[in-house]
């Protein structure tokens, strides 16, 4: 795929009332992941969670729909593993290649800010204007788009 400059991206920030070691462990331990990983109305059985916590190691979760039992498997590979500060994995099969970076930032009062940064490759054209960069967070686009919609 092409370089980083022209990827779509999403940044999601969230403060949790827990030390970052615990949060890192929650994100990387099947016993924890099974409790929260899947989206609403799904469960993530613990035997469907594979964590090989090292760069190049497999990170897979099988999510089961509560409604009809249908399964969706996330297949990722760890790219970077730095307890307790940073975790990166890649999903090569999703939307042309999705990379998720999670940064755990200590706030000093027992709380931790978890910054989730997701970039995919909405395969950019190679035109020069497309190379201007995708560094603006899509989150802000979301606000912007909502504003536009509201103006109409």
């Amino acid at each position: 795929m092409n370089d980083m400059a022209d990827r779509g991206e999403l940044t999601y920030r969230r403060v949790h009332d827990a030390p970052r070691e615990l949060l890192f462990d929650c994100m990387t331990t099947p016993e924890h992941l099974t409790h929260f990983w899947g989206p609403a109305r799904t469960t993530t059985p613990i035997d469907g969670v594979t964590v090989d916590l090292r760069p190049g190691g497999v990170f897979e979760t099988v999510m089961v729909s509560d409604a009809d039992g249908s399964q969706y498997t996330m297949r990722a590979v760890y790219v970077e593993v730095q307890r307790p500060g940073k975790l990166v994995w890649a999903e090569p099969d999703v939307e042309g290649g999705m990379t998720t970076t999670i940064t755990f930032v200590e706030l000093g009062d027992g709380r931790t800010e978890v910054v989730t940064h997701q970039t995919n490759v909405p395969a950019m054209s190679r035109r020069p204007e497309a190379q201007e960069g995708f560094l603006t967070s899509l989150d802000r686009f979301g606000v912007y788009v909502a504003m536009l919609a509201g103006q109409r």
Binding site: R14, H16, C26
Partner: peptide
């Protein structure tokens, strides 16, 4: 992610 972290908070 919102849903996921909501559930993480509940788990915590």
């Amino acid at each position: 992610w919102e849903e996921r972290y909501d559930r993480l908070d509940e788990h915590l």
